[in-house]
Nucleic acid binder design. Structure first.
Length: 298
DNA sequence: AAAGGTACCAACCGCTCTCCT
DNA sequence: GAGGAGAGCGGTTGGTACCTT
């Protein structure tokens, strides 16, 4: 199995950081001949690199559509959601973040997300941590996304969304009748990605354009006003996240999500008074320091 | 200003998967 | 169906930039 070790004369194989000349050589070769056949590419191009190394350099760094810079809150939100579904399937997750590489997402997860898990002394693969992300982190990211979208000049989407969502109040097509996903259909680029859209309908609401994040074990319900809410059956107080359908922003992540706890407490207060393990003061204070997690690169 | 610590990310490694003969 | 080669994936490491003391 795996013939990739047979890459040629090891004495001549270069390792370590790529030089500008090597980059240019690789770009030029791929421009002329296209990508693929990495081993023969490595030989023919004159690069003293393995095919694997060439492939990695191209896919993770040189490819023209690579997006550089910090992950946006929206992208972070997607990563959290998709990771909770698929685990460490980085390339699968990367399929849904155009311009982002699996390596970048993996690094983000390890350096930012797992760091928080360590601080909280929770196993980052545990259900508890997933629940933590869903209940604390993701709603806050949603807020960030909302803030960003309302600040951006293109916030006209809010206006358009109103009329669109009015339709949806009557036609609740985005409720989990079928498979729902967080991923905008526009990002479904490769066949590999398309096969993987069977997300758990309990955890995400998604129509062709809208999306929302819900905890595991949530039961989606509507009230007579047409508002959408869901109850988390795993929580003792039968607490309810409330999603105002009128605030769904079609075509963009935008929704007014607030925790409706006992006595209609503000979201932040409700959240730290929930299930037993969340009553721990140390936990709460640690978690609410997570703003650093979505800071932007300097 | 220097030293030590930390965070980030590019690159490597070993393994598995897929395709072709 | 078996075997080999290429491609891809996820885990890990090493270098460096940045931060703190």
């Amino acid at each position: 199995m795996g013939g990739s070790s047979n890459e040629g004369n090891f004495n001549e194989i270069r390792r370590g950081p790529w030089t500008l000349e090597e980059d240019n050589l690789l770009i030029h070769y791929i421009t002329c001949h296209g990508e693929g056949r990495w081993n023969s590419l490595a030989k023919s191009s004159g690069l003293k690199r393995t095919g694997k190394s060439c492939r990695l350099r191209w896919l993770n760094y040189l490819k023209p559509d690579i997006k550089r810079g910090n992950l946006t809150p929206r992208e972070q939100l997607l990563i959290l959601e998709l990771h909770s579904k698929w685990g460490n399937r980085w390339s699968k997750i990367a399929c849904h973040l155009p311009g982002r590489t699996d390596n970048e997402i993996k690094n983000y997860w390890r350096t930012r997300v797992q760091k928080q898990a360590r601080h909280l002394k929770i196993d980052s693969n545990s259900k508890r941590f997933v629940e933590t992300l869903r209940r604390f982190w993701m709603p806050r990211l949603l807020e960030k996304v909302e803030q960003n979208s309302s600040l951006s000049p293109s916030s006209s989407t809010t206006t358009t969304s109103t009329s669109t969502t009015k339709t949806n109040q009557n036609n609740l097509s985005f409720l989990p009748q079928e498979e729902h996903t967080l991923i905008p259909s526009s990002s479904l680029s490769s066949p590999q990605c398309i096969e993987s859209e069977n997300l758990d309908s309990r955890s995400s609401i998604f129509s062709s354009n809208s999306m929302a994040m819900l905890p595991e074990n949530s039961n989606i319900q509507t009230n007579p006003n047409g508002d959408i809410g869901y109850y988390n059956s795993s929580l003792q107080n039968n607490d309810c996240y409330h999603v105002d359908a009128s605030n769904f922003d079609m075509g963009f992540i935008h929704l007014d999500m607030q925790a409706m706890g006992p006595g209609d407490m503000p979201a932040s207060e409700v959240q730290v008074t929930e299930a037993d393990w969340m009553k721990n003061d140390e936990f709460a204070s640690t978690f609410w320091n997570m703003d650093e997690l979505w800071h932007f690169k300097k």
